Amino acid sequence: MIKQALLGEFLHEAENTRKLLNAIPDSALEWKPSEKNWTTGQLASHIAEVYNWYDGTFNLDVFDMGTYQYDKGDISKAQNIVEKFEENVTRAHEALNNWDESTAMNEWRMEMNGNVIFPPMPKIQVIRGFLFNHLYHHRGELVVYLRSTGNKVPGMYGPTADDNAF
């Protein structure tokens, strides 16, 4: 039952992420709001990469970032980021579909070279926070990036100010 609820949200929100990533023009990829922030391309790439963490979160009790291989691909074109998202979201969907939800309360932690970097907690809490909510947070940032560069924002939960409904 938990898996079905997560799957429904996953599918809905993956479509919202797809709309948002497809709204990024190449001309905005190098923009960033300050020296402390990522560029639009880096932020969009990170959003696409979160989907690559599903297998290690759903199917392992210890996610080792020391051995994890981050492959952002070529982020010089927005379409490349969308393609990486599509690859990752397909694998994420498979990980969620194949997940044994009886492991939802297993203790999960993230380590790097033997050091705990994400405190142990029930896997379901990590799925909601580390995967789902983390992604939503960064999508919100990306909306601000798009607005700040004069680009349109797609409706994800209804019309936006860019739609003719207003």
Score class of each variant (00 low, 15 high):
K19R: 13
M112P: 04
A23I: 01
D26S: 01
P120F: 10
G155E: 06
M121W: 12
V144F: 11
I47C: 14
P120L: 06
L43E: 02
T90W: 13
I127F: 00
D162Y: 10
I75P: 07
P33L: 00
M1E: 15
V143H: 04
A161M: 10
A92T: 07
S45E: 09
V126A: 15
R91N: 13
M112F: 13
F85Q: 01
A44V: 04
N80A: 12
P119N: 14
D26A: 11
E86N: 15
S102F: 09
Q42L: 10
L6M: 09
S102M: 04
E9Y: 09
N97W: 02
A161S: 14
L131P: 00
A48S: 10
S102D: 10
A104L: 14
G158H: 09
W108L: 07
G158M: 11
N16P: 01
Y157W: 04
P25A: 08
M1I: 11
N151H: 10
Y145P: 05
M105P: 06
I75L: 07
E49C: 15
D162W: 06
A92P: 01
E107A: 10
V82L: 13
A14C: 09
N22G: 08
G129V: 02
W53L: 01
E13V: 07
T149H: 03
N59H: 09
G66R: 07
P159Y: 11
N16G: 08
W99R: 05
F130V: 04
F85S: 01
L96Y: 00
D100F: 02
K123Q: 14
S102Y: 07
N151Q: 14
I81K: 03
G73V: 14
K72Q: 15
E101F: 01
V62M: 06
P25Y: 03
F118A: 09
D74F: 04
I47K: 03
G155C: 02
Y51V: 02
G73I: 03
R128W: 06
E15V: 02
P119T: 14
A28F: 13
F10K: 01
V82D: 04
S102H: 08
E141G: 07
Q125D: 14
Y68T: 02
D162E: 03
H46M: 11
S27W: 07
L96N: 00
D55V: 03
R139Q: 14
I127R: 01
D163L: 02
N106T: 05
Y70H: 14
H46L: 12
G129A: 11
N133M: 13
D163S: 01
T67I: 15
G8W: 11
E87P: 00
N133R: 04
M105L: 15
H137N: 07
D163F: 07
W99M: 03
A48N: 05
E35F: 02
A104M: 12
A44E: 03
R18A: 03
Y68Q: 08
A104V: 13
L60H: 08
Y136P: 11
Y54K: 00
D74N: 03
L60Q: 15
W108E: 03
Y70N: 12
K77E: 12
T90M: 09
W38M: 09
K84G: 05
S76P: 00
I75E: 06
N52M: 13
M121K: 15
N113W: 10
N113T: 13
N16L: 12
R109P: 05
E111I: 02
T160H: 00
N52C: 15
G114A: 06
G140P: 03
R128C: 14
K36Y: 06
Q125V: 13
I47S: 04
